[in-house]
């Protein structure tokens, strides 16, 4: 007999086909966003039109899965109507929850659509019981997606002091910046991760091969990595680039290309009171979603049944073929 309540498995989808793949692979819920700047994965060719989301919601609901709309970037003055329309459209389509980061949008949802279930995005950066309870009390937030800066014991303490559910990231891309606060892309390209919804916009990324099978990665005017022949690559983000500093040459000054993988901590997270386990990767392919969602479906079901899951295949899908348990295991995870 298991000691756990089986958590909800929350999976990513960047396209309608990915959403169907996630549902078919065993997702309890799928999160996705509209085309445009209103969500934090505003990449070319990605995301949903209103018509696509409508069909996708029907597909998921027919298979007893939920759909969560990520409207989790920060509107700026003069542009709030785009975010409000996204909220209105999502509500009209019968979305199961709206994921919001901006406090103004949280107020808009609470006042305009008081019956709509509201989740607080990781982008809101709410990590203390005081901050979380503020959103719960003011805007009736039902779930918080915790920033990836807390240890499991800290998550347990947060859980014991708040009046809403906790969703925690368990796999995928991870940065060492506090979510919703990073301006590195903005600094180099003029495009904001938090307000335009795109970190390292593809329009500013350039890969320059050399004759020795090396590769220089550039973002805007800056070389952010030089990869030698045989070395693995990572996402073209400033935080995972290599730099020369006064103390060290050609090293990962911020963080190595690496993926979060909390498979081994799943029982601890479940004991800490985490309601939902989130897989990152709306920008990834259907092949990734199929593999990762299936693996986590098996892992969660196995742990819930008191068995040990086989988790060896997930490493092949990690960035740089390296994995970390990040701050969940230790505050100094480097």
């Amino acid at each position: 007999m298991s000691e756990f309540i089986k958590p909800e498995l929350v999976c990513p989808a960047g396209t309608p086909a990915s959403l169907r793949t996630a549902v078919d692979a065993g997702a309890d819920s799928v999160y996705c966003g509209f085309k445009g700047p209103t969500n934090a994965r505003n990449f070319p060719g990605l995301n949903f039109t209103k018509a696509e989301l409508s069909e996708s919601v029907k597909y998921a609901h027919d298979k007893d899965a939920m759909v969560l709309a990520a409207i989790n970037s920060f509107p700026t003055a003069g542009r709030t109507d785009i975010w409000k329309k996204s909220v209105d459209d999502a509500v009209e389509l019968g979305i199961d929850a709206v994921i919001i980061a901006d406090i103004g949008m949280a107020k808009y949802v609470a006042e305009t659509h008081p019956d709509q279930r509201l989740h607080l995005s990781v982008q809101a950066g709410a990590s203390s019981p005081e901050a979380i309870n503020f959103y719960v009390e003011r805007f009736n937030v039902k779930r918080v997606v915790l920033p990836r800066i807390l240890t499991v014991p800290e998550i347990k303490r947060v859980h014991d002091a708040i009046d809403c559910e906790i969703e925690a990231f368990v796999f995928g891309n991870i940065g060492m910046m506090a979510e919703g606060r990073c301006s590195l892309t903005n600094y180099v390209t003029g495009i904001s991760t938090n307000m335009d919804g795109v970190c390292s916009p593809a329009s500013h990324v350039d890969y320059e091969p050399d004759e020795e099978d090396g590769l220089t990665t550039r973002l805007g005017d800056f070389a952010i990595d030089c990869i030698s022949c045989g070395e693995t690559a990572g996402y073209p983000t400033i935080c995972k680039g290599r730099y020369d500093t006064a103390h060290k040459k050609n090293y990962y000054a911020f963080e190595e290309p690496i993926s979060l993988n909390l498979t081994r901590l799943l029982p601890d997270l479940m004991r800490a009171g985490v309601t939902a386990l989130k897989i990152e990767g709306r920008q990834r392919s259907r092949a990734y979603i199929r593999s990762v969602v299936s693996a986590f479906r098996d892992a969660v079901d196995a742990y819930a049944a008191g068995d040990e899951p086989d988790i060896t295949e997930l490493i092949a899908l990690t960035e740089g073929h390296k994995e970390t348990q990040g701050a969940f295991k230790s505050k100094s995870w480097r």
Binding site: G14, T15, P44, G45, L46, D206, T232, G234, S285, G320
Partner: peptide, 23 residues
Amino acid sequence: FNRDIAVTGDTEAIVALRNALDD
């Protein structure tokens, strides 16, 4: 990541094509 494929040129275009085909 594993360097099994390489891409040079207009990164935005190849990302859009990848996502379109993947749908």
